[in-house]
Design a protein around this nucleic acid. Structure first.
Lengths: 110, 110
DNA sequence: CAAGTAAATGCGTATATGCTCAAATAATAA
DNA sequence: TTATTATTTGAGCATATACGCATTTACTTG
C-alpha cells in the first residue's frame, strides 16, 4: 500500500492533538528521555528527574494511557518502559525543524 | 553528517515540549489542515473551521510565534500559510503510531 | 474627513492541568 | 499480625489557556 496522504477527519485530528498534548509537557519528555536507557521504577525515575514521587507517578500514568509507555509490576516496584519507539522519530523531527529555524534566524544577522 | 542520536539537553527539551504543546490543540491542527490547500485569510479560516474570528486570530498568532505558519498582510486581510512542512511528517508519524496501536488492540479480541 | 471592513487585542470566565501534601493500596518481610 | 516500603490516589491550590464579547487598530474607499 502506497503512502496515503488523505486529510485527517475531525475525529482523527482529535486523537492526534491528544498525543501531541501528552508530549507537550517537559516533565513527561524528561521521563521518556530517562527511559531510553531501559525500563526503570517510579522511584528511580523520580530521583533521576528530581520530581516528587506522586507527580512522576501521575505523569507516567498519562503516558501509559496514551500507550507511550508500558507498565510492569514486580513486587513492590512498578517498572515503566518505552512502548512506542515512534516517539524518538517525533523528537528527532522536531529537533531538526527547530534547528533549521534557528539557523534561518541566524542567517538574518549574518 | 550522519544522524546524531545525542540526548536532548533540558533546554532543548523545553523547546521540543513547547512545539508539541502548540500542536496539541485540535483547533490549531484544524487550521493547519485547512492551510494545506494554500495560504488563506483569517476570515476564510474562521469560516472554514467554524471558529470565531477572534479565536482563530489568536491561534494563528500562536502558530506564527512557533514558526509553524507565516504571515502576509495584503490590504485589509492577513494571509497565513504553512511555514514548516515538517508538521505533516509529524502528523503522519503520529497517525501511523495510532493506527498501529489500534490494530494491536484489535488483535487482542481477534 | 467619515464610513466600512478585516484583523488584533483587552478583559472576564470557564476549564484543564500541573503540583503538593496527606492518606490509601499493595506487596513484602519480621 | 504488624511493620515497612513502593506506588497510587484524593483533595486542594495555583496557573495556564481556550473561548466569547466588546473594543481598538489598520487599512481602504467614498
Amino acid at each position: 500500500m502506497p503512502a496515503k496522504k488523505a486529510l485527517l477527519s475531525d475525529d482523527a485530528l482529535q486523537l492526534v492533538a491528544r498525543r501531541f498534548a501528552v508530549l507537550g509537557e517537559p516533565m513527561r519528555l524528561r521521563l521518556l528521555r530517562a527511559l531510553i536507557e531501559g525500563e526503570k521504577s517510579v522511584g528511580a525515575l523520580a530521583a533521576e528527574t528530581e520530581g516528587t514521587q506522586a507527580n512522576v507517578s501521575r505523569h507516567l500514568q498519562t503516558l501509559a494511557e496514551a500507550g507511550l509507555v508500558g507498565r510492569r509490576k514486580e513486587g513492590l516496584q512498578v517498572f515503566y518502559s518505552i512502548a512506542d519507539p515512534s516517539i524518538f522519530d517525533l523528537c528527532e523531527l522536531v529537533c531538526g525543524s527547530l534547528n533549521q529555524q534557528t539557523r534561518a534566524r541566524a542567517r538574518i544577522f549574518a
